[in-house]
């Protein structure tokens, strides 16, 4: 399985989908997050692998 983390939320998804598909599947906006795996930024077409932990970084700020 693939663990996806955004702030204090966590999900588990099946491996083999792209990062973009994973973000969409979680109901999130791909424009509003970046994905990091093993400390490295990864692009949206990257395929997730079994055992991955993907940290999503929210990019929207303001007030």
């Amino acid at each position: 399985m693939v663990k996806v983390i955004l702030r204090n939320r966590e999900w588990e998804l099946r491996p083999g989908m792209t990062v973009r598909s994973a973000i969409l599947k979680l109901g999130l906006d791909p424009e509003a997050v970046l994905a990091v795996r093993d400390g490295q930024l990864i692009n949206e077409a990257t395929l997730t692998r079994d055992g991955d932990t993907i940290k999503l970084v929210a990019v929207i700020s303001g007030g």
């Binding site: 906006d29 791909p30 424009e31 509003a32 929207i60 700020s61 303001g62 007030g63």
Partner: peptide
């Protein structure tokens, strides 16, 4: 972390709308 006072700010809502357009 976002500034604790920014939660629910109109700017953030407008950015989310624009990102939906961008998508």
């Amino acid at each position: 972390d976002e500034c604790p006072h920014a939660s629910g700010a109109t700017t953030i809502f407008h950015k989310e709308l624009l990102n939906r357009l961008e998508g």
